[in-house]
Amino acid sequence: MDKRNIFPISADSKVTHELEPRELGTCEKERRKFISQVLGGSLMLMALPTLASTLFKQGMSEAEKQRIKKEYLEKYCPPGYDPFAHQWAYGIDAYKCIGCNQCMTACKLENGLPGHPSINNRWIERYTKLAGDPHVHVDSCTEPANIAVSDPDNFIYRFDDRYAEADVEYSFFVPKMCNHCADPVCTQVCPKGATFQTPDGAVLVDEDRCIGCLYCKQACPYGARYLRPIPARPDGVTRVAGKCTWCWHRITKGQEPACVDICPKKALIFGDLNDPNSDISLWFKEHGRELLVLKGDMGTHPSVKYIGINEEVR
């Protein structure tokens, strides 16, 4: 035997490459039957909801809808306030904002938040581009240097003057808050149904239902949510998701949100889009083509619109 032949197939052994045609076995037949049945069944299942909705959902007549709406208005809406009659919107003029943080103070005192600079319904960011520096520097009230010049115990928040000596290309303040999206993400992910959208466009949190799991915080593209300490509930929950409510307790009484009321530069505008002569309708009309939203590509359709920001603002 040749020592070099290490392969087990010898040169004269025959290898057939042809497969002989044979009949389908029982196994294959069963499989094909199974697949066709599963397909048919799943199609049926898919058709069922549509079928059911056409059969039953049409049963909710106009009269029934009106009855539900009436009951909603009478039993659950604050007296004298019709959420169906309003469509609130908010405008922020970053050209005018001077970063005085008065809106933040007002918001905290109005909504009973603690003074800690990280627990905010709204905050202001400073965007600064230095000459010769490709990066844009962003800082807000939570930064240690800014806390050092602030007085959180007395609800006073300030920006330090860190760019006084620097060669600044541009710098501006941007107030940030919950965008009260028309298609909110937070309401979709909430496992308890604790966050919801009212017919007037505000996105609110039910403090009694929220368990503080913060799925909404993870879902929110604007970082507008946080854990808010509350007095301990019977079920032991001490912190729930907090967010801007557009001061719902104020707007239902015909007042503006506290931040809009307090702003010394009129950089914040709030109003009803259903009223063509409201502040916000006129402001939207005036700045029609300049209006920008944050993260428009997220498809959330924010109700808060900006002017005076650039593409660096996220």
């Binding site: 909504n111 149904g193 403090e207």
Partner: peptide, 14 residues
């Protein structure tokens, strides 16, 4: 959502 929370939210002091 529980519509009763609307009344609770609206009852906050101004």
């Amino acid at each position: 959502y529980d519509a009763e929370s609307l009344l609770y939210i609206a009852s906050a002091p101004v």
